[in-house]
Computed example of a mutant assay.
Amino acid sequence: MSDHSQILVISSEHTLLGTHRGTVRVTSGGTLCLEGTLKGTLDIQIGATVRINGQQQGTVAIAARASVTVFGAIQGTTSLERGASLTIEPSGKLAGTLVNYGLVVVRGVFGGAQSGNGTIRLEGDGYIKKPTSIKDGAHYYEW
């Protein structure tokens, strides 16, 4: 199990196993396959590609012309710029705040607050989870 507390920059093809603590930056032309757990920031720059089979716990920033496909789970704030895309596959889950100026395709489940003027497209059995309760303006979800 790898356990790091530093910035990991990915500029080619890379698979991340185990646990990484800190920031992972995927640069243009880079491809990341997250098989383990990332506890920190995932910074996906223009033209990069990410596949999340494991768990992302923290902030995800997706730049224009970058794409992310989720078979596992994202827990945290996810931001998409114009021209960015995020696909939540049937086994995938997006739990947290979504700031969307790109395209989000939900084939799995999304639950959380939303802002931005991007597109959310539900496909297949994809759905947006409703909060189980709202207390003092905070939304609570049961997964």
Rank of each mutant, 00 (worst) to 15 (best):
N100L: 02
A73Q: 15
P90D: 06
S115T: 14
A95Y: 08
Q114F: 10
T69A: 11
G116T: 06
L80G: 06
I88Y: 00
F110R: 01
A73H: 11
Q114N: 13
V68E: 02
T87G: 03
G96H: 03
T69K: 12
G83N: 09
N100A: 05
I88R: 00
V70R: 00
R65H: 15
F71E: 14
T87Y: 02
S85D: 10
F71N: 13
G83A: 11
G76S: 06
T97E: 11
R107I: 05
R65T: 15
R107G: 10
F71A: 15
G83P: 03
V68D: 04
Q75K: 14
T78S: 12
G102L: 01
G108M: 03
S91M: 08
S79M: 11
T97I: 12
E81W: 10
A113K: 13
T87L: 07
F71P: 01
V104R: 00
S85E: 10
Y101N: 15
G83W: 07
T78E: 06
V70Y: 04
G116S: 10
E81V: 12
A113H: 12
A84G: 11
L86A: 03
R82W: 11
G72Q: 11
V70L: 10
F110D: 01
V68R: 00
R65F: 15
E81I: 09
T87A: 08
S67C: 11
R107C: 09
I88F: 01
S115Q: 14
G102N: 03
L94F: 09
T77D: 11
P90E: 06
G108I: 02
R65M: 14
L103K: 07
S91R: 10
T77R: 11
G72L: 12
G116F: 04
G96E: 01
G96Q: 04
L94T: 05
E89T: 03
G102T: 02
V109P: 00
S91C: 06
I88T: 04
E81N: 14
V105N: 09
Q114A: 11
L80E: 05
V99Q: 12
V99W: 05
R65V: 13
G92S: 08
V68W: 02
L103S: 05
T78M: 08
K93L: 12
S115N: 14
L80S: 07
A73I: 15
L86Q: 03
I88N: 00
S67T: 13
G72V: 14
G102D: 02
R107W: 09
R107A: 12
F110G: 01
V68K: 01
V109Q: 07
A73E: 13
L103Q: 07
N100F: 03
G72M: 14
